[in-house]
Simulated scan of single mutants.
Amino acid sequence: MALDVIDLRGFYGSVLGGVARRFIGQFVRSRWEACTGYSVLGVGYATPYLDPFLSEAVRVLAFMPAEQGVVHWPGKGLSSTALVDVTMMPLPDASMDRVLLVHALETSDQPYDLLNEVWRVLTPGGRMIAVVPNRRGMWARVDTTPFGYGRPYSRSQLRELMREAQFSPLNWAEALYVPPFARRYLLRSAPAFESIGSKLALPGAGVHLVEATKQLYSPVMTRRVLRRKVPQLQPALVSAHRMPGDAKRETDD
């Protein structure tokens, strides 16, 4: 189920959206501290997390699914956004060093094809970060935020999807332990929720955060050879002077 770009922009303009951007953005920036000389791509609705890379990356692009819609970004200068089919992105092979997926996997009807396309455009040694709703978290259970739409994942489901798409996870984390309600006292306590939840690795965080790199070679699958049991044939004594039709004639007699 695709989200509407207007709703996404409205959420990130709210106080609760600012909380999500703060804690998810901290993880993204801690993993990608410096992207000088890199090409960075955001897929889905990743623009709230791409601003820090504008001043250092060679290029920063934001691709948004056709079903979602597109907005102009960044606010000043030429737009770096495009409306695309995210399973067939208009980029050459191995052209991007970093790819950030936000509001993408969970709303895609073809998550495997999406990851396959990300694998294609990533450079050898390139990194991807996926932000995916946690199926055990409260954020996936209410539809007042964009994280309540689409298909949430457990960590094991996400790991299996990554494996099938030939990605190797490098770092796992979780974020958004604060309940997804715009209550002032909750939002004021958001840093405490986040600190306690991450230190104790409590279940129920709002999103999974996984950084992965592409596998350069597909694993060789060992095919098991099935041996058929061949029936054992017993030799039969046949006269050297017997003709092929003799056996039939003897039967007829």
Rank of each mutant, 00 (worst) to 15 (best):
F63D: 08
F63P: 04
F63A: 12
F63R: 08
M64S: 10
M64W: 03
M64C: 08
P65F: 10
P65S: 06
A66G: 08
A66R: 15
E67Y: 05
E67N: 09
G69E: 10
V70S: 04
V71L: 14
H72P: 02
W73N: 04
W73P: 01
P74G: 03
G75N: 04
K76P: 00
G77L: 03
G77T: 08
S79Q: 07
S80C: 13
T81F: 05
T81A: 00
A82D: 09
L83G: 01
V84Y: 06
D85E: 11
D85I: 08
V86Q: 13
T87H: 07
T87L: 04
T87V: 09
M89K: 15
P90L: 06
P90I: 08
P90T: 09
P90F: 07
L91R: 15
L91Q: 15
L91G: 09
L91E: 14
P92C: 02
D93V: 14
D93M: 13
D93C: 13
A94L: 11
S95G: 03
M96I: 15
M96D: 04
M96C: 13
D97M: 15
R98D: 01
R98S: 03
L100T: 11
L100E: 08
V102G: 00
V102N: 02
V102W: 04
A104Y: 13
L105Y: 10
E106G: 02
T107K: 09
T107P: 01
D109A: 11
D109G: 12
D109I: 08
Q110W: 13
P111R: 11
Y112C: 04
Y112G: 04
D113H: 13
D113Q: 14
L114C: 12
L114F: 13
L115I: 07
L115H: 09
L115W: 07
L115Q: 06
N116S: 13
N116I: 03
E117H: 09
V118G: 01
V118W: 05
V118E: 00
W119L: 06
W119H: 14
W119Y: 07
W119Q: 11
W119G: 01
R120K: 08
V121K: 10
L122N: 01
P124W: 00
G125W: 06
G125S: 04
G125P: 05
G125K: 07
G126P: 03
R127N: 10
R127G: 03
M128I: 09
M128N: 07
I129E: 05
I129Q: 07
V131Q: 03
V131A: 02
V132P: 00
V132S: 02
V132G: 01
N134E: 07
N134P: 02
N134S: 07
R135G: 02
R136V: 07
R136H: 12
G137P: 00
G137V: 01
M138H: 13
W139V: 03
W139H: 05
W139C: 00
W139S: 00
A140M: 12
A140C: 12
R141S: 02
R141V: 02
R141T: 08
V142M: 14
V142H: 15
V142L: 15
D143M: 14
D143T: 15
T144A: 10
T145I: 12
T145M: 11
P146G: 07
P146K: 11
F147N: 00
F147E: 04
Y149C: 04
G150L: 14
G150E: 15
R151D: 03
R151K: 12
R151A: 02
R151F: 04
